[in-house]
């Protein structure tokens, strides 16, 4: 399936993947991040249960220096 992550299309060789699995795959476990799934914020507690489907859009953000 194809997921758009932070504006980039990514291909995954699976048809069923939770947000947790994606976070693991992306080496983001333990990082302080927040995720928006098709425009909706996904609370961290829901990462296990929210399943991704082809065509989904994800925004994965963190805190950086700024004024």
């Amino acid at each position: 399936m194809q997921i758009t992550i932070n504006g980039n299309d990514k291909h995954f060789d699976t048809d069923a993947m939770s947000i947790s699995a994606l976070v693991l795959h992306m080496n983001l476990v333990g990082k302080r991040i927040a995720i928006e799934h098709n425009g909706e914020i996904v609370p961290r507690s829901q990462f296990e249960v929210v399943m991704l489907t082809s065509g989904d859009r994800l925004e994965i953000v963190g805190a950086v220096g700024g004024g």
């Binding site: 992306m26 080496n27 925004e59 220096g65």
Partner: peptide, 30 residues
């Protein structure tokens, strides 16, 4: 201290240090 919210640098950030490690939330109000 102010912080900005930006897209995480996917794929190239395995062990990159993060701002929050230098400014722990126990010490500062973000």
């Amino acid at each position: 201290v102010t912080v900005a919210i930006r897209r995480t640098n996917i794929g190239q950030m395995a062990n990159e240090p993060s701002l929050l490690e230098y400014l722990p939330p126990e010490e500062f109000t973000y």
